[in-house]
């Protein structure tokens, strides 16, 4: 559990970080909170010569409120998400989900950007961001572009981001007042990835449903959202379950995961509906 040797870089400017990625190509990786990358390095499943730490870059910091959306820096930690009162009020779903990620020690270091950019199907935030219809800003040598979370994930650990691009900010639309929400997660213990998890938003004539760790990418189902928006709960569940493709692991066999996915989603829908206000 000792990584191979590497050079550590800690640029203070985004351009410098991108420059390092260009210079070293496959040999370089960015590191945010390190909770996914460092274990992979220790297992020597990720061997790289240059580690580019993003923590000193101001562009990747901060929580900024716009008129109808919030811009979150990629280096905002789960702890900051949880502790931000304005955020909890505007998008309570974010806080509910972040509180179910690992434990306080992990959340002090683990970042939103790292969680969504890594493409690990076990991470909670990608599905959540798809549910919220968030947009990721990635910046590379040719400038910046915006990618919807719903278009970002291609397969496990493969995303729409190029190797020389850095995910810098996440824009989350503020749900309409009174929108019901829930993040329901079954896990074996604190610190575990989800056996199955569901994010649900439901408001006046609209709904959004996404699920976590039930395929090699987060599963957002337009059909499920439409069914729930129309008041058809079981239709929503059927549509979401039709979109998942769970794999057997130590959490259990496929049949179990499929069943639990339905249970978890029904519970999330019920809780979200119970929270619809006005």
């Amino acid at each position: 559990m000792i990584p191979a040797g590497f050079d550590y870089h800690r640029p203070a400017e985004l351009d410098a970080a991108i420059g390092l990625l260009q210079e070293h190509g496959d040999e370089a990786r960015v590191i945010a909170g390190g909770h996914s990358l460092v274990p992979m390095m220790k297992l020597r499943m990720a061997v790289l010569s240059h580690l580019v730490d993003l923590r000193d870059i101001p562009d990747l910091q901060g929580i900024e409120f716009g008129a109808d959306s919030i811009s979150l820096g990629a280096m905002v930690t789960q702890h900051e998400l949880i502790a931000h009162a304005g955020l909890a009020e505007a998008v309570p779903l974010l806080r509910e989900a972040a509180l179910q990620i690992a434990d306080p020690q992990v959340r002090y270091l683990g970042t939103l950007g790292g969680n969504v950019a890594n493409g690990d199907p076990g991470n909670d935030m990608p599905g959540l961001m798809q549910c919220l219809d968030a947009t990721y800003k990635v910046t590379g040598p040719d400038g910046s572009r915006q990618i919807r979370a719903r278009d970002f994930y291609e397969s496990a650990y493969f995303t729409a981001r190029s190797d020389d691009e850095i995910l810098t900010r996440i824009t989350v639309p503020i749900p309409a007042a009174g929108t019901g929400y829930a993040y329901e997660k079954q896990k074996r213990k604190i610190g575990d990835y989800a056996t199955a998890a569901a994010a649900v938003l439901v408001g006046e004539g609209s709904a959004s449903i996404a699920m976590t760790n039930l395929a090699d990418v987060p599963v957002w189902s337009a059909e499920a959202g439409a069914a729930l928006a129309a008041g058809d709960r079981e239709g929503a569940v059927s549509a979401a379950l039709a979109a998942i493709d769970p794999q057997e692991d130590m959490r259990g066999p496929v049949e179990f995961k499929r069943h639990v996915a339905g249970v978890v989603l029904r519970r999330a829908i019920a809780r979200a509906l119970s929270r619809v206000a006005g």
Binding site: D103, R188, K189, I190, G191, M250
Partner: peptide, 28 residues
């Protein structure tokens, strides 16, 4: 309630980290 040393049919150890080998936290 969860702790085990498991192998697959090839004798691969499936529970060699604390992610899969259950050690309860104060929460559980």
């Amino acid at each position: 309630m969860g702790q085990e040393i498991a192998y697959d049919d090839m004798g691969n150890h499936k529970t060699a980290t604390l992610m899969d080998f259950f050690l309860p936290t104060s929460w559980e």
